[in-house]
Simulated assay, not measured.
Amino acid sequence: MRGGVRTWLAATVLLLGAAAAPAVQRCDPGARRTSPAERFIVNEDGTVTDRVTRLTWARCPVGQPWDGRTCQPGKPYAVWFSWREAQEAAAEARLAGHADWRLPNIQELESIVERACVEPAVNTEVFPGTLPNAIFWSAGEDPENDGYAWAVDMADGATKSVLKDSVTFQVRLVRGRPLVFHRSEAGGDEAPADDGIHDPTNPDLGLLQRPEEAFAPLPKDRTGAPDWAAALRQGVIRPRAALTDGEAVEVRDDVILMKDTRQMPWVAFPHDIHSRWLACANCHDAIFVARKGANDLRMDEILRGEQCGRCHGKVAFSPFVCERCHSVPHEGSPRPWW
């Protein structure tokens, strides 16, 4: 049962938001659309079916009724959920004559993100009820911290690991066979999806490689995830500076030692391994100011997907593998460390 304090808080936030100018979705007109309207079959019952994944989605977030044309605004305490409440809402859903609705997994949520747009990063013609800064729960728990679950921030489409007890996130229901990004268990003989773009008779559509097969030659960290830095040092992978041969990577070999870590071991930031992957302009100065002492690094910001979290936890190792960064024990740090 939703508490009175929560209802008051939600209503207060809604009133404050109403006083501000409405946000306008921003899209890059030159970017390729990742969720074009043509990819979806619009049903008359407030749902859409994705031609690519074959999943059927509720067009409105839970708590925003479909009126036959669009999503009506819902009361804040009816559209905001903790992770446990999101699971309960999915189990209780009876929508468009079906009772098999569920929370989407994180890959399914990512599949409907419109990468050409922000605030929200979704096709608003297909999903008209999406607020500019809505965060949607997935069914997936963070395997490295049982207090966290995965969610997608529709402000920019970023995937985040967030506290399950957070109570201001939303739910978009899905039904259909769960999406898995590899060939079918039957050996790839499942009929390819008709997405309106690719030739469904092309046999190469069924040749997607399993992640575990692709990552098998790579060294692993203690969590079993690929250790990309070790793979680079061992020569298992060889990133290029550009698509064309002959361009060299500009590598810096200095290490920044960060000592403001209290009882945790100090953090050693190696420019070497980062500059083998990234040009300086990827980080400076939009994410980090290139000046000693100018950046206040905070774990809460990193876990929210900012600062180092722009990459770590997404395309680089998880920020919960603490020893990868906190690698320099000092007099006040615990012994042994890891």
Score class of each variant (00 low, 15 high):
residue 28 D to I: 11
residue 257 L to K: 00
residue 191 A to L: 04
residue 332 G to A: 04
residue 100 D to I: 12
residue 122 V to M: 09
residue 5 V to N: 06
residue 147 G to I: 03
residue 191 A to Y: 02
residue 105 N to L: 11
residue 335 R to F: 07
residue 200 P to W: 10
residue 157 G to S: 12
residue 228 W to D: 00
residue 95 L to S: 01
residue 251 V to Q: 01
residue 91 A to T: 11
residue 5 V to E: 11
residue 98 H to A: 15
residue 118 V to L: 05
residue 117 C to R: 02
residue 63 G to W: 03
residue 137 W to A: 00
residue 11 A to K: 12
residue 156 D to T: 15
residue 207 L to A: 10
residue 87 Q to V: 13
residue 244 T to P: 01
residue 218 L to R: 05
residue 90 A to W: 06
residue 42 V to Y: 03
residue 284 H to K: 09
residue 234 Q to N: 09
residue 243 L to S: 07
residue 74 G to N: 10
residue 87 Q to A: 15
residue 315 V to Q: 06
residue 212 E to T: 13
residue 323 E to P: 02
residue 232 L to G: 03
residue 143 P to H: 08
residue 101 W to M: 03
residue 82 S to D: 04
residue 92 E to N: 13
residue 306 E to L: 14
residue 315 V to C: 02
residue 251 V to Y: 01
residue 284 H to C: 09
residue 44 E to D: 14
residue 292 K to W: 07
residue 55 L to M: 13
residue 59 R to H: 09
residue 165 D to Y: 11
residue 86 A to Y: 04
residue 139 A to F: 15
residue 89 A to S: 10
residue 222 R to A: 06
residue 277 W to F: 15
residue 39 R to G: 07
residue 32 R to N: 09
residue 6 R to N: 00
residue 146 D to G: 09
residue 13 V to C: 08
residue 216 A to W: 13
residue 93 A to P: 07
residue 112 I to V: 14
residue 37 A to G: 10
residue 9 L to V: 11
residue 122 V to H: 05
residue 270 P to M: 03
residue 94 R to P: 04
residue 311 C to H: 00
residue 115 R to Y: 04
residue 290 A to E: 14
residue 287 I to T: 12
residue 70 T to I: 06
residue 218 L to E: 01
residue 24 V to D: 07
residue 87 Q to G: 15
residue 277 W to P: 01
residue 32 R to G: 06
residue 247 E to G: 02
residue 278 L to A: 11
residue 51 R to P: 02
residue 46 G to P: 03
residue 64 Q to H: 08
residue 157 G to Y: 14
residue 2 R to I: 06
residue 334 P to S: 07
residue 166 S to T: 09
residue 3 G to W: 05
residue 241 A to M: 01
residue 313 G to M: 05
residue 138 S to A: 13
residue 298 R to T: 11
residue 24 V to C: 06
residue 90 A to T: 07
residue 202 N to S: 13
residue 18 A to I: 09
residue 236 V to P: 03
residue 76 P to K: 12
residue 46 G to R: 02
residue 244 T to Q: 14
residue 111 S to C: 07
residue 269 F to A: 07
residue 187 G to M: 07
residue 129 G to N: 08
residue 160 K to V: 14
residue 81 F to A: 00
residue 214 A to T: 05
residue 336 P to S: 05
residue 169 F to D: 00
residue 115 R to S: 07
residue 15 L to C: 08
residue 35 S to C: 11
residue 223 T to Y: 10
residue 217 P to C: 05
residue 1 M to N: 09
residue 239 P to G: 01
residue 291 R to I: 01
residue 14 L to C: 06
residue 282 N to E: 13
residue 187 G to T: 12
residue 234 Q to R: 10
residue 133 N to T: 15
residue 291 R to A: 11
residue 89 A to C: 04
residue 212 E to Q: 14
residue 282 N to D: 11
residue 145 N to G: 06
residue 322 C to I: 13
residue 127 F to E: 00
residue 133 N to M: 12
residue 328 V to R: 12
residue 199 D to T: 06
residue 155 A to C: 13
residue 113 V to G: 02
residue 20 A to D: 13
residue 225 A to H: 14
residue 70 T to P: 04
